[in-house]
Amino acid sequence: MPIIVNLDVMMAKRKMSLNELSEKVDLTLANLSILKTGKAKAIRFSTLESICKALDCQPGDLLEYANK
């Protein structure tokens, strides 16, 4: 899929672990892992909003379009 999820990059920048993020955004580790590994097919605006809030970033920091 040409949409790349840069969640791991943002987590590294904020020095936040997956467990910590999971608690803050109220998502299961399994779901966060699906998102992080790029297996997710879609993301809800509400989920994106809570992740942006927790990581203090913009949606564009998390998602990237790469034409391959």
Partner: peptide, 8 residues
């Protein structure tokens, strides 16, 4: 269903 399961 698969798509729905992979919607976060």
């Amino acid at each position: 269903q698969t798509e729905n399961e992979l919607m976060i």
